[in-house]
Design a binder for these strands. Structure first.
Lengths: 188, 188, 188, 188
DNA sequence: AATGAATGAGCGTTCATTCAT
DNA sequence: TATGAATGAACGCTCATTCAT
């Protein structure tokens, strides 16, 4: 009998530990040695679980997407009025700002390394968007798909601005404004 | 008898030709040889004008930022009502979608390769944001800095969504909605 | 309660299955994993029976040499005249051409990986030659050691030509000629 | 202007120096680093002249084949009777024994790394055989193609026997016997 | 000024071997 | 006994950079 290891579970543990590594250096710039070191395994072990750097990255993005959605949906609950909810969103984003920024780094990297066709073919990650939409619906009680897309787009924009080091955009301030605009638009 | 060349001007010509190269492969993944080929010069020549790959990239981002702002401000003119203006913005973004996406790739790459400190120190690119804000002011006639930040943030979010292959977000549709929300919010 | 296995016999079974593996890829190019797969055991088991890749190869060559001689001597019987015997040899070589070529691959590999000294020291495989000579004596009824060496040398040359893809050399034709030359030489 | 180098000529110089390297370790066992060291260049330079290890080896075999034929044809001249010629051949082979053995190592390696189809397709090296045949014709004054093939086959067998460390086969002795057998066969 | 040959550290990956089970 | 997970040195190859011309 060989060393007893749950191959599949250990693979996922390794993937989970990759987040900061890919976020901070980017796919192309990080080396398999650095990843192995960060994961505290040898390069050989890395290749025992993943056939290539590319495959490791793709499996990682898939796994991280799932986690990201679970995290977000779990945290956004309990606020009452639209305004309260928008501000709760702001607090959530502020609290997780670093994580969100890293996630943007990872996704941008991911999409840059896919050619457009590949993205359209496998559709790949539209289900992520879909789940986000559902979360936005639950949070804001809004059905209008265009309006939900508006909110999500704005959130992404917020994170992107912070990523760019734009300290003039304040997340809570902007979320408060979002709340007001939604209210104004809906009561009209 | 050296070839007579305006060193400074040629340097800028070379930088201008780098856009697609950096956008499509990313800083880490593209090689100096590929850049040299794309620019139709030898690697030796590249190093004659730029001391290193890093320096080339940084000079490129600086130059491209300036161009980006010039382009954007030049194109957004003439619409009358707030609604018309928001929709003009939508048309502009749709027309330049590929360019905008590439620009996001480049900037994300750029910020990823800076450590946070470096970003804050040289402030670096806050003047870009500033110019965008001025452009937004000119376009929408809005003075409120938080509101302007809201609009810019939303625009960045739009481009980011497209970059992620999210075809469910329609730029014109979202811009129309932006116009309505601004109107509703301001008349209130 | 260990599985009951005749260690020594299983070792030989494993060696016997190595023939094609070493012949087709060569010692340096084949990996222990590939060998293990070909033998339908784990690498661990392989190392349980053989201390190293080198040792495995050397034990394999020794075992295969013995088999090779047994095969050859068993098959060459019954022809009467010198001419008939030479032609019987031709038929045998044609029938086993692939095997013979593989055997050349293996032996060349083996001798290449020994430095000259090692070959002379352990004498290593001269007994193989010796057995071949005895077989040639039995087959052709020739005592002259130089003449027997001539015949064996020629046979090796035949196989080597085929290995090199030289389709212009026909084994039966050449064996017929060998018969004629031997006859002419001996009757003289 | 770059460093002035005749790319093509230097490439051939490098190939010429590869002989012992490939002969002594074999294609699969020798590393590009070892080759670079043996050639006194860096690995980078090696890859500047050859796109891959495989390509280097194939170019090397092609170049070495040409040299081999030139060498052999140049040296075999001047003997008078058939017997004298056979013995001249013996002397030549003895003198070049090491080289011939190395050449066998290289060719066997080469053919092992080609699949059978590839060998038949490009025919590849039949022209080598052809030139050898011409040389044998010139040396022995023999037209019969089967007989020439016999002689060449025997020569290859001789070299192969020596490669295998078979010291009981004496090249001059065997060549003398070859002369006698040819004479006996032809006068008959 | 401009070229591209040369370098060698470092990349993604493989492999003989070890060892916990 | 038998397994296959784990290791890390070493592989083929690439790359930013230097420098003779």
């Amino acid at each position: 009998m060989p060393k007893i290891v749950d191959h599949e579970q250990y693979r996922k543990e390794l993937l989970a530990k990759c987040f900061d590594l890919f976020a901070e250096k980017g796919y192309a710039a990080i080396t398999m040695r650095q990843i192995a070191e960060g994961l505290k395994v040898s390069t050989g072990t890395l290749y025992h679980y993943f056939p290539s750097k590319k495959a490791l990255f793709e499996q990682f993005v898939e796994e991280a997407s799932k986690q990201e959605v679970l995290m977000a949906t779990a945290e956004l609950e309990g606020a009452q009025t639209l305004q309260e909810r928008a501000e709760a969103l702001g607090k959530y984003l502020v609290k997780n700002e670093d994580y969100q920024i890293k996630w943007v780094y990872i996704l941008v990297d991911f999409f840059q390394h896919k050619d457009a066709k590949e993205v359209q073919e496998n559709g790949g990650f539209e289900w992520v968007t879909e789940i986000y939409k559902q979360a936005a619906y639950d949070l804001f009680g809004i059905q209008d798909r265009v309006l939900i897309a508006f909110i999500l787009t704005f959130i992404d924009g917020l994170i992107y601005e912070r990523l760019c080091g734009n300290r003039m955009v304040s997340i809570p301030e902007q979320c408060t404004l979002l709340g007001k605009m939604l209210t104004a638009y809906l009561v009209e």
